[in-house]
């Protein structure tokens, strides 16, 4: 009996070497401890053993069982390790690139727009939106633009056909639809809808009937700002724009106002900046924006009392700012969408 058990364990130790997968293992296990297994047979033979010998044999059988179980455990561990290794495959080459697409990218115009929005949000300006199709009233009349102002000419502004009918662009009376030439129309609609204090910026796409070249585009993006409250001063306007341009273009950026003329502001200014950070530009003054105090006629057209309220408005081209801060020399890059351009700003 004892010899038999030794043989069984010995055979198991040898045979386990041939076990390489779970099926082999189950067969191997069945051959020893299965219903007809060699060890099971010995256990079943216990009945014929003399009563007084049983404790000794029982002990021997238990020892054999433990030894077999240990063999099982080692074999199983090896099989599981092999299975995992097979599932995982060979070790990776960590230097290989990901086969997935390259990172995506946000268009530089979007980035500049978002940066401008972020800076203005710091000082309480929120983003207002309007439609690209507008009407002559909101684009010109309400902004104190004379009836025969050249900006209204068919050569300069895109119009929709006379019978055009827009479901979600409201008219003041029976004026014409057009493609907005600036986002000032958003200021008018915001003032009509809300009440002072108002502090908004309105970024968006605008249209002028220009021929495309290095500095002109069939459409372009602008951001305008409007601040209406009691006692808003010229100095406040300067302070806000100084703050903005220093945030945008870096510390040490200075601005200067030059007198100018816009129908919707009085007084009106053009804004130049000078920044040592933008080496390409040197120390010259560079034109960057237009601004001014809201013209009383504009307040009158939206029903605000010009005696009570004052305010300022400003506007600038997003393409122009992007060209300045990134050093881009041709506006057409923005609309070509060559990935070698786009990914530089990712």
């Amino acid at each position: 009996m004892e010899e038999e058990l030794k043989q069984i364990v010995g055979a198991a130790k040898i045979n386990v070497g041939a076990v390489s997968n779970r099926a082999d293992f189950e067969a191997f296990k069945a051959g020893i401890t299965g219903p007809n297994g060699s060890l099971t047979k010995v256990v079943k033979g216990m009945g014929q053993v003399a009563k007084e010998d049983r404790p000794t044999f029982g002990k021997l059988i238990n020892e054999a069982k433990q030894q077999v179980q240990a063999i099982y455990d080692i074999a199983l561990e090896a099989i599981e390790a092999a299975e995992i290794a097979e599932r995982l495959g060979p070790p990776i080459d960590p230097s290989l690139p990901s086969p997935d697409s390259e990172p995506g990218s946000l268009h530089p115009l979007t980035q500049v727009r978002e940066e401008i929005s972020r800076i203005f949000k710091q000082i309480g300006f929120t983003v207002a939106e309007g439609t690209e199709v507008e009407t002559e009233y909101y684009c010109f009349d309400a902004l104190n633009t004379p009836k025969d102002h050249p900006a209204r000419d068919l050569q300069d502004t895109f119009y929709l056909p006379d019978d055009a009918d827009f479901g979600n662009v409201s008219k003041n009376s029976d004026e014409r639809y057009l493609l907005r030439t600036h986002t000032s129309s958003v200021q008018i609609r915001t003032m009509l809808k809300g009440e002072a204090p108002i502090r908004i910026i309105s970024p968006g796409r605008c249209f002028r009937r220009d021929t495309v070249d290095a500095t002109h585009s069939a459409n372009f993006n602008q951001v305008e700002g409007l601040y209406v409250d009691k006692n808003v001063t010229v100095r406040d306007l300067k302070a806000i724009l100084d703050y903005f341009f220093e945030q945008l273009l870096g510390k040490g950026t200075t601005t200067r106002f030059r007198p100018h003329f816009f129908p919707y502001t009085e007084p009106s200014f053009e804004v130049d900046f000078s920044s040592s950070h933008l080496a390409k530009l040197g120390s010259d003054w560079v034109e960057i924006a237009g601004c001014g105090m809201v013209e009383p006629e504009v307040f009158a057209s939206v029903g605000y009392d010009p005696e009570l309220y004052s305010g300022f408005a400003f506007g600038m081209g997003i393409e122009r700012i992007a060209m300045i801060i990134y050093g881009i020399d041709d506006i057409r890059y923005f609309y070509q969408n060559d990935h070698r351009f786009l990914k530089q700003f990712a």
Binding site: P103, A218, N219, N337
Partner: peptide, 14 residues
């Protein structure tokens, strides 16, 4: 979309 590896483009409205 940028997180999904898309590149933003800007095309003309007309």
């Amino acid at each position: 979309l940028v997180g999904q590896h898309f590149n933003e483009v800007v095309n003309y409205t007309l």
